[in-house]
Design a protein around this nucleic acid. Structure first.
Lengths: 180, 180
DNA sequence: GGCGAATAGTTAGGTGGCTAACCATAAACA
DNA sequence: TGTTTATGGTTAGCCACCTAACTATTCGCC
């Protein structure tokens, strides 16, 4: 009987045993699945620890990155809905993220004079500077995390993960069909 | 310049380009990392959708599963700290999870007469019954999600993920050293 | 021009994660 | 036996996610 996303991953032999009781349980699928979730979780924690040292979370960091990417010039802006779409979160959630980013002086928010429904979000110099501080270690950690894998293994991993992603998309309707 | 954990994963060529600006950025590591997080995220959503149909979340489901696993007989119990440890969350978080589970009649909670600091959590018949409803589809979805991969590919994936897990543990001190 | 539909951003309420602090109890030590 | 340390569960506050609902604005159609 497997535990899911728990501290101790069940061994394959335990899954074989559990499959006797649950005919729908495929031991190798279950094992791969649990390892995927666990490794993803642990990997996220690694980069989050680096971000936390700069008093920022993954979500807020993502918003800053989107602003840098989508705003070529210093004067460009994005609306909360665009940001939410790019970040893959709801507009309501994005309101909260922008709230705290604005509070910390990392972005500014002002009404759009052209479309009066819109707010315009802009990255501040402080926000840009913070990214400059964060990114070197961020990338180093990422590289270090993947260092046990050879170039070939990384490619293999990406290929396998891409297959799973393609399958996952089928579960969730055509909402994410615009990816890549 | 890469987006992180965003809706559109950057293509490898974009990462090569970005590496010119950021010397610490390793394109293949970054690509593998982003795919790992993205696939994990999407996979979690798949199983969560199934759980949501039964009005339960991943976290609460995990608690029920621990209770089933750790409590061989119907009369056995676990304390909140044990549950938190097994689930990999804090005791404070576990209090909230038990609160809602108790509210929904899926577990009971009573003081321990032997050790008066303790509460004892027990799975109810309703909780057990709910698991019985959930598990068939839960396992089926898991199997279906991994179906694009052959048995060999699944083994390969697990091996690669295990390497990353071992590396991730080094970042987070010996706290999780008891895994597997 | 007027009306209905669509869009934008925010609020309210809920859930689940965290840390720090708290009170109560048990265990360890002198 | 008394004191200190450790453990257990909960609370407060914060954050991030969601849905549903709301108000305001814009768009499309007649």
């Amino acid at each position: 009987m497997p535990n899911l996303l728990l501290k101790d991953l069940p061994r394959y032999e335990c899954l074989l045993e559990a499959a006797k009781e649950f005919p729908d349980l495929d031991p190798s699928a279950c094992e791969a699945f649990l390892h995927l979730l666990r490794t993803g979780d642990e990997s996220a924690r690694v980069v989050e620890a680096n971000l936390a040292r700069h008093n920022i979370t993954q979500g807020r960091f993502g918003v800053l990155m989107i602003l840098v990417n989508r705003c070529a010039g210093d004067t460009s802006t994005l609306g909360p809905a665009e940001l939410a779409d790019a970040a893959g979160v709801s507009r309501a959630t994005m309101t909260g993220l922008i709230d705290t980013l604005e509070r910390d002086g990392l972005v500014t928010r002002e009404p759009d004079t052209v479309d009066r429904r819109m707010m315009l979000v802009r990255l501040t110099a402080k926000g840009r500077s913070l990214l400059g501080e964060i990114l070197p270690d961020h990338f180093k950690n990422m590289t270090l995390l993947m260092s046990p894998l050879s170039e070939f293994e990384r490619q293999t991993l990406v290929q396998l993960l891409t297959k799973i992603q393609a399958q996952a998309i089928k579960f969730t309707a055509p909402v994410s069909a615009a990816a890549v």
